[in-house]
């Protein structure tokens, strides 16, 4: 396998619906409205809704993250092949049962259409369907890194069965396919990017090198690396080497 090349097959979801189990075709997906695993003792509930960005004037808890759905088919993050879903993205929101919001600095709870700017690099497209995962903690929770990681991890666990089905889908049936090569330009000035990211505590953290693109499982917190600089290739970056925990 050429470790300089990353192929991303994009499957465009036209229909996203709630059903009894996970089922994905080349253009549609069905997901349950609750996790099919036992949720953590610190949680009261995890509720799933399908939302249309064009019709979303309703109240939500603070937006903890916006997450793409992608999975490794061949190779590791940064090379080989990934299957990715377009037309659908995930918003994770969270609070405790009394309404205490899960955030570090400033909350985005309120009406969804007023609290997010769609069509940016970090937010869903207004043509997407949104899978809204709303996590409610029991009121006696401790606001710390462990609790927040558990919330992110629960969302990740909910998404994993989608990735498992996506993994075995044939790239030839993808709506689009992109090939990214690490191209050198000898003789040109050498340029690097330095990204300074959060690394101090609960909801102020980032995770790298998870098994799945934009995933949590096996990820390493930048705090646990004492915030030391690490080098990522452009392809690792665009293959989801980082999961934000801000």
């Amino acid at each position: 396998m050429n470790k300089n090349t990353l192929t991303i097959n994009a499957f465009s979801m036209q229909d996203v619906t709630i059903g009894p189990k996970y089922h994905i075709t080349n253009t549609s997906m069905e997901i349950p409205d609750h996790p099919l695993f036992d949720i953590d003792d610190r949680l009261k509930s995890i509720e799933i809704k399908i939302v249309d960005p064009k019709d979303c004037h309703f109240k939500i808890n603070t937006i903890m993250d916006v997450i793409p759905i992608s999975t490794k088919v061949l190779g590791n993050i940064g090379y080989g092949m990934s299957n990715t879903l377009t037309g659908v993205s995930v918003i994770l929101t969270g609070a405790d049962e009394t309404g205490v919001q899960l955030h570090e600095f400033g909350s985005s709870d309120g009406y969804l259409d007023e609290k997010i700017k769609f069509d940016t690099d970090g937010t869903p497209s207004s043509d997407d369907k949104i899978i809204l995962i709303d996590v409610t903690l029991k009121s006696d929770f401790e606001f710390n890194r462990k609790t927040c990681e558990m919330v992110f991890n629960s969302a990740d666990q909910f998404l994993q069965p989608i990735r498992e089905e996506l993994k075995v889908m044939n790239g030839r049936n993808a709506a689009e396919s992109f090939e990214y090569e690490d191209i050198k330009h000898p003789g040109k000035p050498k340029v690097a990017i330095v990204k300074e990211v959060a690394g101090q505590g609960a909801m102020y953290d980032n995770m790298v090198f998870a098994k799945e693109p934009g995933g949590i499982e096996k990820g390493i917190s930048i705090i646990d690396m004492d915030n030391m600089p690490i080098l990522l290739s452009a392809n690792e970056y665009r293959d989801g080497a980082i999961h934000a925990l801000v």
């Binding site: 340029v191 990017i193 080098l231 990522l232």
Partner: peptide, 30 residues
């Protein structure tokens, strides 16, 4: 957001510019 990193515009622009020899992204915490 995680989605922002996935679509990172800075990586997209700098990595694809033929006038520079792009080396990579250093991720550093605070």
């Amino acid at each position: 957001t995680t989605m922002h990193h996935f679509h990172d515009p800075l990586v997209r622009v700098v990595a694809s510019d033929p006038d520079v020899d792009f080396q990579g992204v250093i991720l550093v915490g605070t």
